[in-house]
């Protein structure tokens, strides 16, 4: 039985000829929060997008090496199937503006035929919105367009949309970077609960050390396209082995 939900083997990525990720051997433990932290432009989002193969929608990208999800090499699988089990929330809230709040959450289960009846769909939508801590705020206006929600609520709607597929792995690309601190806390809290209650594996990208330490079970520190250090969050936070990690945690590079 594979202990890691995600494991990369000598992962190299080039975008338009630029070597963005260099020989990354990254791991994410099952049912835990692994934070990828690092300064802007270090390659953390690229690493995240290699895990659901979203990197491939950008033309001019070359990927070498292996990415295993629960022991299976995803680059020999169909990318659409991968993304159904490994869903993602982006940095900028991007709910589909032409659909209602309800439809935004329902679209995934509908497309992937996870439900057989309207009742089942309603149940999944409610479950996802509850898990994203948004249900109480939107239950009376599920047919409104998402643009009527605040930015933080929109981001939680995106979380619900990603959860509605009941993914095994949830990727979060700086999900709180563009929203207010209150909503940011709600999202962090929602994610911790998801790991605890549903056993979801979370990979969380952030560029703020404080957030990394606050949410992580494990931390991977990326600098300049290289994986500098990886380990349990406490260890990295209290005794970083690498000088770069220490400097980053103290806010000296970023």
């Amino acid at each position: 039985m594979e202990r890691d939900a995600v494991r990369t083997e000598n992962l190299n990525v080039w975008i338009h000829g630029k070597h963005v990720l260099k020989n990354i051997n990254f791991r994410a433990a099952v049912s835990a929060i692994t934070v990828i932290m690092g300064p802007s432009g270090s390659g953390k989002s690229t690493l995240l997008r290699s895990i659901n193969r979203l990197i491939e929608i950008v033309p001019g990208t070359k990927v070498e090496g292996k990415v295993y999800i629960f022991g299976r090499d995803i680059y020999s699988d169909d990318p659409y199937r991968v993304r159904r089990y490994v869903t993602m929330v982006s940095q900028t809230p991007n709910p589909f503006p032409h659909m209602s709040i309800y439809e935004n959450v329902a679209i995934g289960p509908k497309l992937h035929r996870l439900v057989r009846s309207k009742e089942e769909l309603d149940k999944i939508v409610r479950w996802a919105l509850e898990k994203a801590m948004l249900w109480d705020e939107v239950k009376d206006r599920l047919n409104d367009p998402p643009t009527r929600l605040s930015g933080g609520q929109q981001q939680r709607l995106c979380l619900a949309r990603a959860l509605a597929l009941k993914p095994r792995i949830l990727l979060l690309d700086e999900p709180t970077a563009n929203i207010d601190p209150v909503n940011a806390r709600k999202i962090e809290e929602a994610i911790k609960m998801l790991v605890k209650e549903e056993g979801i594996t979370v990979i969380f990208v952030t560029h703020t050390p404080a957030q990394a330490v606050r949410v992580a079970d494990f931390i991977a520190f990326i600098y300049n396209g290289e994986l500098v250090e990886y380990g349990p969050a406490r260890e990295i936070a209290l005794n970083p082995r690498h000088r770069l990690t220490e400097m980053y945690l103290r806010g000296e590079i970023g």
Partner: peptide, 8 residues
């Protein structure tokens, strides 16, 4: 990106 990230 939102569409692709839920497996569309």
């Amino acid at each position: 990106e939102a569409g692709y990230s839920i497996g569309m």
